[in-house]
């Protein structure tokens, strides 16, 4: 039985994706401002109100999904790909290669991700591509560990032994016999990584290091900070959007985990 919360999470994510794709059809131009600055919510033309430059907060929040989803999904995929590659290589090769790759993994796991991302973006300048690269590079260690553990166990499993005896080369063996068996945990981790990446991106935006040419939820909260006293709505709506989206990805990740790993039930 699928819990109702999973349906809600799935529903919200579907809405988010639709919003990202069809934002121009639903909302006005999020970059176009006007004389009507700092209008409160439920104003006739702007039902979530306007910001300090008279831009429509509903439009900005809707268009903000684009940056969040792009960053979240691409970095999660990048993290999964790097993590699987490193983990599979370490688990399959064993020995010195394994030790070296695991030290590298440990190094990346130890690094304080957010602070490192902040400093890197500050040094190299803001931009969506840079944000994706930095978060993506930092997103793989956990996947690598999980994959390595599974691959190391599976390496000596009977069906793998059989294929090996049958003359299958190493890479093909990993791809066809072993990876399908680690797909489930990798997907679960990727879903959780999307959530983490969205939070990281929002934090970067809040520090003023988001892409200056795109609206993003973090950047909206950055601008809202100095208007907290005069225009609470500037802070409330983008925050709700972040929280709900992250919550949905987390919930989905947990549900996937529960469905694929019976031991994890109830935790």
């Amino acid at each position: 039985m699928i819990p109702i919360s999973v349906f809600i999470a799935g529903g919200w994510l579907t809405l988010t994706v639709l919003a990202a794709v069809f934002a121009p059809l639903v909302a006005m131009d999020p970059y176009a401002g006007g004389p009507d600055a700092l209008l409160p919510p439920l104003s006739p033309a702007h039902w979530l109100g306007t910001d300090d430059l008279g831009r429509d907060i509903f439009a900005e929040t809707l268009f903000g999904t684009r940056v969040s989803l792009t960053v979240g999904v691409t970095t999660a995929i990048a993290g999964a790909v790097i993590g699987v590659a490193v983990g599979a290589a370490a688990g399959w090769l064993g020995g010195v290669a394994d030790a070296a790759l695991m030290r590298l993994t440990e190094l990346f796991q130890t690094l304080p991700r957010f602070v490192l991302a902040l400093v890197t973006i500050a040094l190299f300048g803001p931009g969506l591509a840079k944000v994706i690269v930095v978060i993506g590079i930092l997103a793989w260690p956990q996947t690598a560990r999980v994959v390595r553990a599974s691959v190391a166990t599976l390496r000596s499993a009977p069906f793998v032994e059989a294929a090996r005896v049958g003359g299958m080369p190493g890479i093909a063996l990993v791809l066809s016999e072993i990876l399908p068996n680690v797909a489930a945990p990798v997907i679960v981790l990727a879903a959780l990584d999307v959530a983490t990446a969205i939070l990281l991106e929002a934090g970067l935006g809040f520090f003023g290091l988001g892409d200056p040419n795109l609206v993003s939820w973090g950047a909206m909260l950055n601008e809202a900070q100095q208007y907290l006293r005069t225009a609470w709505w500037m802070a409330v709506f983008p925050g709700i959007a972040i929280a709900a989206t992250v919550l949905a990805f987390n919930r989905l990740g947990d549900a996937l985990n529960a469905a694929t790993d019976p031991r994890g039930r109830g935790r």
Partner: peptide, 22 residues
């Protein structure tokens, strides 16, 4: 636990300021 893990803490901070300070 689920909510606490999903909320961006700086936004929680802003909301606390909004409610308890402002």
């Amino acid at each position: 636990a689920t909510a606490g893990y999903a909320l961006p803490e700086f936004w929680v901070g802003q909301m606390l300021i909004l409610v308890f300070a402002i």
